[in-house]
Amino acid sequence: MNEKVRKIVIAGVMGAISVFLGATHLGFIPWFAGAALTVMHVPVIIGAVLEGPVVGAVIGLIFGAFSLIQGAIAPTGPADVWFVNPLVSILPRLCIGPVAWLVFRAGKKLKEGQLFIISGFIGVAVNVFIWSLSQKLGGFESDAVMVFTVGVSCVAAVTVSCLLLFWQYKKSSELFPYAVSAIAGSMTNTALVLSSLGAYKFIPWQLIGTIALFNGLPEAVMAAILTVVVVATWSGIESKRKGSSV
């Protein structure tokens, strides 16, 4: 099959899924304290690992443009309206796909053990990044907040590692790169959207670490599971668990 045509169609179809999940609110899972988790970025990740960084960026563009338009035309809350700014809605989403793809490519080249160690630090890295950024830009009001944010990073790392351990244990190592790249893609989304919200002073920096923990991490885990199950089934890799019992 002509590769270019396939890329165009997959980008279009995955873009449609992202828009659909947003427009129907199926892609929002009510979480605690009024917050919601989203899976709207999962089509971006799946598109990127299947068809490469350009396809990923294009799907991200559709995802971002949709949040912009939704914020402008049919917002469902104040948070939606933030996204009317393209630097909040579009720019961060453009990066999800390429990051996911880069991590996926790197992951495929590495041996299982190396991959395991490196991926364990992804959560730490991303969270330390958010933490130091908020430190620099906002400054912590108390030590408690700082201790809390460092805690976030540790929990993040542990969660990511546990997830990976789980896949390792199940001996389906071909699926490693997919899980890791989904986590990286998802965290890119969280980190960049939150940073831009912070830079625009929509959210105080002090809150951002907390949001990264309570929303960013479960979103990353969700994205990883969904990506792995979908891609594994699609490319016919037999996962020992058959994938569907989640």
Binding site: M1, R6, V9, I10, G12, V13, M14, A16, I17, L26, V39, V42, P43, I46, L226, V229, V230, T233, W234, G243, S244
Partner: peptide
């Protein structure tokens, strides 16, 4: 719901 939604979409894309 999500998993078959993605798989059906990929098949349709083909």
């Amino acid at each position: 719901l999500f998993v078959p939604m993605f798989l059906i979409s990929l098949r349709h894309a083909e």
